[in-house]
Amino acid sequence: MTTTKLGYARVSTTNQSTENQEKQLSEAGCSELFVDRAVSGSKNHESSEYAALFARVKELRGEGHDVTVCVVKLDRFSRSLKDLLEGVEELGKLGASFSALSDSFTYDAASPMSKLMLSMLGSLAEFERSLITSRMNEGMDAKVAKGLIRGQKPKLRSSAVKAIRAAHTAGDTTPGALAKEWGVSRSTVIRVLELPGFSKPYVTLDAWELAKERANAQS
């Protein structure tokens, strides 16, 4: 059975051209090309062209064709190992193969060795993610030890906290109304006012920024 080759090309910015990629893909025997222009490699899996490529693979496989998706280089298909593996694995589930021409990388949907290779790469990707997470956590713990306040950046400065408390003490407005007025959640106002149900004291933006500055100064 003749294999139908589909090509996928991508560039990240408007001042780049896919012309060279398209030429190489056509010379490699790709009968149809799917092209993403000015699309980041971290976002291309959400693009309409990327979706159209997979839809075409599914259509051709439904018609009984052998299908291979080709790219010039692996980083044209994805900028992260995780997304690359997910994309190739999805093609494999559809019964399609994958080839990166310049990187000598081939996934053969009919080959047990290709499936084993993909599984090994998946394990390496998971290991890489765990290392990154571990390093990030270690870095954060070190900064917390130096005074950095963990959690999201607060929205309210001390002046706003004083104004909210003053308004509530005067009985002028409710927590819900105060939340709307200051553009924060009701739970934030409850923490600011230290009403029943608040989980921990509210840290003002002033205090958060000062703690961050001190922690960075000690790094």
Rank of each mutant, 00 (worst) to 15 (best):
F77C: 00
S78G: 12
R79H: 11
R79G: 07
R79N: 06
S80F: 10
S80K: 10
L84N: 06
L85G: 02
E86W: 14
E86S: 14
G87N: 00
E89M: 06
E90C: 13
E90Y: 15
E90M: 14
L91C: 10
L91R: 07
L91N: 06
L91I: 11
G92H: 09
K93C: 05
L94E: 11
G95S: 08
S97Q: 12
F98C: 08
F98Q: 09
S99Q: 15
A100E: 11
D103C: 02
D103H: 04
F105V: 12
T106M: 14
Y107N: 03
A109T: 07
A109M: 02
A109E: 04
P112D: 05
P112K: 07
P112L: 03
P112N: 04
M113V: 11
M113F: 14
S114D: 01
K115I: 00
L116K: 14
L118F: 12
L118M: 11
L118A: 08
L121K: 03
G122A: 00
G122Y: 00
S123A: 15
S123N: 15
L124C: 07
L124E: 03
E126R: 12
F127D: 07
E128L: 03
E128N: 03
R129Y: 01
S130F: 12
S130G: 09
L131M: 12
I132A: 08
S134G: 02
S134T: 04
R135W: 08
R135G: 03
R135Y: 09
R135P: 01
N137K: 15
E138C: 11
E138G: 13
G139H: 00
M140D: 11
M140F: 13
D141N: 12
D141M: 09
D141Y: 09
D141E: 14
A142I: 06
K143E: 02
K143D: 02
K146F: 13
G147R: 00
L148Y: 11
L148F: 12
L148M: 11
I149G: 02
I149H: 01
G151H: 04
Q152D: 12
Q152I: 10
K153E: 14
K153M: 12
P154L: 05
P154N: 06
P154A: 04
K155Q: 02
K155R: 07
R157L: 04
S158T: 14
S158F: 15
S159Q: 13
A160F: 15
A160S: 13
K162W: 12
K162L: 11
R165F: 06
A166D: 13
A170H: 07
T173N: 15
T173F: 14
T174I: 08
T174S: 13
T174D: 09
G176A: 12
L178D: 05
L178C: 05
A179H: 00
A179T: 01
K180V: 07
E181T: 11
E181V: 06
W182F: 04
G183C: 01
V184M: 03
S185V: 11
S185K: 06
S185P: 06
R186G: 04
R186L: 05
S187W: 06
V189N: 02
I190A: 01
I190M: 02
V192A: 06
V192C: 07
L193F: 10
L193N: 05
E194F: 15
L195I: 10
L195C: 09
P196T: 07
